[in-house]
Nucleic acid binder design. Structure first.
Lengths: 212, 212
DNA sequence: CGTCTTCTTGAACCCTATCAAAGCACGTGG
DNA sequence: CCACGTGCTTTGATAGGGTTCAAGAAGACG
C-alpha cells in the first residue's frame, strides 16, 4: 500500500498556486464592513475569493433558523470554491475585511492551481466533522482554541476575532455552553481570558490532552 | 456579485474527468473483503482510489476510541484524495468490494481531472457538518435515509449496506439512538423496515420535512 | 436447529439546551 | 468626566434529549 519516497513528492504538484500563475495578484480587491455579505445562499456562483485581511465566516442556515458555520477564513485563505452553479452557503465579513475575487473565466488554469486549496479546505472540513460529531462541549472549545492559536502562528496569546455566537454556531453548541466551557478552562488554569476576546493559553499540553 | 449566464458555464471545465483522460480505466483493480483495510491512519499516501463496486467507509478514531465516519463511498465514488503525505483517516471495505487505485505518478494531469471530484467530496463534507452540528437524532437519521435513497437512484425502497454502528458513527450518535429514531419513523408511518437492512420510504415528504 | 452477532427496547443518569437575569464593555450624550 | 443605554457575555435554575448500562428479541450462519 505504501510507495517509494520519490513518488510521495508527486502528491504536491499543486504548489503551483494561482498566484504563481501570475493571474491572481492583478485581480480586484473589495472592502467589506463587519457583517457585510460576500455572497448569499441561492445566488449564482461565478467567483472564488481570497481573504487579504480581516476574516470571513461561511455558514448555512436551516429552515428553522439554526445556523452552522462551516468555516472561518483568515488572511490568505481561499473560499467560495464549489462545483455547483448555485451557492448553498453564505459568506460574511467579520470586522473590516478586504477580499480579492477571482472570476472563473480562465477556468481550467485557475482551477488547476486551486487543487491544493480545495484539498486543504476539504481536509479542515473533515477535521471539523470529528470535532462536532464526537467531542464534548469542553473538548470542542479546547479544539477551537488550539485551532485559533495555530492560525495565529501558534501564539499562546491571541484575540478571538469573532463573537461567542459565531464560536457556538461553529462548534454546534449554544453561546451559554461555550461560555461555560471557557469558564471551566479558565478555572482549571488552562487558559486566561482578557476582556471579551482576548485569550491566553497557560497550559498548552492540558489543552491538547482535552482534544484527545 | 453575480455574473452573466455564459460565464456560469465556465464553473465546470471539470467534466474532463481522469476517465476522459484515458489513464484511469487501465489502472489495476483490487478486491477487498468485508472490513478489510484500504489504507490506515499514519500510512504514507501515494494513491487515490475509486470504488468499482461495493462500498467503503472513511473514518477517524480519537484516542479514547470514539470513531467518526467521515464519508461512505459507493460505486463510482473517489476517495483518499488529500494534499498531505500522511493519512489522517482510515478506509475500510464494507462487504465485498472492488477498488481501482491510481498512483499519483503523473500527478499534475490526474489532479487536474480530479478537481470536480474533490469539490464534490468537499461539498458533501460540508453538508454533513450541518447535519451533525445542528440537527436532532431523528432529523439526522431522516437526512441519512434520504441521502441513501438518493445514492440508490432516488429509490424509495433500498437496502442499507452498513450495520447500525456505522450509521451511528456517521451521524455522531449511538446505535441505540439510531435504532430508536428508526423505530420512531416506523411508528410514524414514514418508513417501513424490512429485516435488518431493508428500508422503504412510505412518506417521502414527511421525511424531507424532518430535515428542514 | 443452535449459536453468535446484531438490533431493539427499557430505565436511569448526565450533559447540554433553554429560559431568565445579572454583569460587563463600550459608546453616546449630558 | 460621569451617567446612561445597548448589546454581548456570564451565571443560575430547570428541563429535555441522548448516552449509558442492561436485558431481551431478531437475524445470520453454520
Amino acid at each position: 500500500m505504501n510507495m517509494p519516497a520519490f513518488e510521495q513528492g508527486r502528491m504536491k504538484p499543486v504548489l503551483v498556486t494561482p498566484a504563481a500563475l501570475g493571474v491572481v495578484d492583478s485581480m480586484p480587491i473589495s472592502n467589506f464592513v463587519d457583517g457585510q455579505s460576500v455572497y448569499s445562499c441561492g445566488e449564482t456562483a461565478g467567483q472564488v475569493y481570497r481573504v487579504e485581511f480581516g476574516a470571513v465566516r461561511v455558514y448555512r442556515v436551516l429552515a428553522n433558523g439554526r445556523r452552522q458555520i462551516l468555516d472561518f477564513h483568515l488572511s490568505g485563505n481561499w473560499f467560495g470554491l464549489q462545483n455547483e452553479d448555485i451557492r448553498r452557503s453564505s459568506a460574511e465579513a467579520i470586522g473590516a475585511t478586504a477580499i480579492r475575487s477571482i472570476s472563473l473565466r480562465g477556468a481550467r488554469y485557475v482551477w488547476q492551481g486551486l487543487v491544493p486549496v480545495v484539498l486543504e479546505n476539504y481536509s479542515s472540513a473533515q477535521e471539523h466533522q470529528l470535532v462536532i460529531g464526537r467531542q464534548s462541549a469542553v473538548e470542542r472549545v479546547a479544539a477551537f482554541l488550539l485551532e485559533m492559536s495555530n492560525r495565529a502562528g501558534c501564539a499562546c496569546k491571541f484575540d478571538l476575532f469573532m463573537p461567542r455566537i459565531d464560536i457556538a454556531d461553529y462548534l454546534g453548541l449554544t453561546i451559554e455552553t461555550v461560555s461555560r466551557a471557557l469558564t471551566k478552562l479558565k478555572n482549571g488554569n488552562i487558559i486566561r481570558l482578557r476582556g471579551t476576546r482576548g485569550v491566553e493559553i497557560v497550559n498548552y499540553k492540558a489543552l491538547q490532552k482535552l482534544c484527545l
